[in-house]
Amino acid sequence: MPGPGRLGRVAYRPTKAELAAAHGRTIEDVIAPGLRVLFCGINPGLYSGATGHHFARPGNRFWPALHAAGFTPRVLRPGEQHELLRYGLGVTNLVARATARADELTSDELRAGGAALAAKVARYRPAWLAVVGITAYRTAFGQPKADVGPRDERIGGAPVWVLPNPSGLNAHWTPTTLAEEFRRLREAAC
C-alpha cells in the first residue's frame, strides 16, 4: 500500500481497499508559528486519510480557491501541501480522524476538536484562523446562528473567519463565489 507522502508529482488514486483502510487514520498538520492564516477543515476524508494530504479528494475546491483568491501563485496539488508554509499559510482539522463523511462525527467530537483547536491556535499564534465549514463551526463553538465571514469572537487569541466547505458536494457555493469568499479573507489578512 502506498501510504502517506506518496502523491508527490504523480497523480495517485487509492484503491477501494486503501480507502476503506484509511477510516480512522490521521494526517499531519501543516503548521508553524506566526502564520498569516491557519485553515481548519472539518476532518480528513478517506481520500486524505489514504494519501496523507489535506483536501486530497479530486473535485475538492480548496486548492483552486486558494489560488483564485490570490493566496498562492498557482494551484498547488495536495502533495505540495507543505509549500503553504512559504506563503504564511497552514492547515489543520477540527477532528483528526478520517471518515467517509463529516456527518459521521459526533457533536462531542466536534466540541472537543474546537477546544483542541483553540489550544493549538494559542500555541502557534496565527494572525487569522479560517474555519472551513460553517455547520462544523456552529457545533464546535456553540454558535448555532453563525454565518460565513468574519466573526466577532476570537479563538485561541486569533480573529476568526468562517469559510464555506470547499467540497464539490457543496454545490450552493460555486467555484467563483467560493473564491470570492476566500479573497475577502486574503484581503483582511494582508
Rank of each mutant, 00 (worst) to 15 (best):
H82V: 13
G70Q: 06
A69L: 06
G149L: 08
R97A: 13
R97Q: 14
T139R: 15
R86L: 15
G149Q: 04
W63M: 00
L129I: 02
R111G: 09
R61Q: 03
Y87L: 13
R74D: 09
N60K: 00
A140Y: 03
L89Y: 09
A136W: 05
P150W: 02
A98C: 06
V132G: 02
F71S: 04
E83Y: 07
L89D: 12
R86K: 15
D108S: 15
L84E: 03
P58G: 04
Y137T: 12
P150Y: 02
L84Y: 00
R77L: 12
A146L: 07
Q81P: 07
L110I: 08
L110W: 02
R101I: 00
H82S: 14
L117C: 14
G70K: 09
F55R: 00
L76C: 10
P58M: 00
L117G: 10
V91I: 12
A146R: 06
L66W: 04
G90N: 10
D103Q: 14
R111Q: 14
L89N: 13
V75L: 06
R74Q: 08
A146F: 08
T139K: 13
G79H: 06
P150A: 15
K145R: 15
E109M: 13
K145Y: 11
E83Q: 13
F55L: 00
T72C: 09
A100F: 11
Y124C: 04
P73L: 11
E80F: 05
A116V: 05
A65K: 01
Y137Q: 04
A69K: 07
L117E: 08
T135V: 11
P64A: 05
G79Y: 08
R74N: 10
F55M: 00
R57E: 14
L110N: 02
P144F: 10
R125P: 01
Y87R: 12
L94I: 12
R61L: 09
G142S: 05
V132A: 11
E80Q: 14
H82Y: 12
R74Y: 13
P144M: 10
V121I: 08
Y137D: 02
L84M: 10
P150C: 07
G70M: 09
F71H: 06
G133Q: 08
S107T: 11
N60Q: 01
W128N: 09
A136N: 00
P126K: 04
T139W: 07
A118S: 13
A136V: 05
V132T: 12
P73Q: 03
G90Q: 11
L110M: 07
A115I: 11
V91W: 04
A116M: 08
A96D: 13
F71P: 06
G142D: 08
V121E: 01
G90M: 12
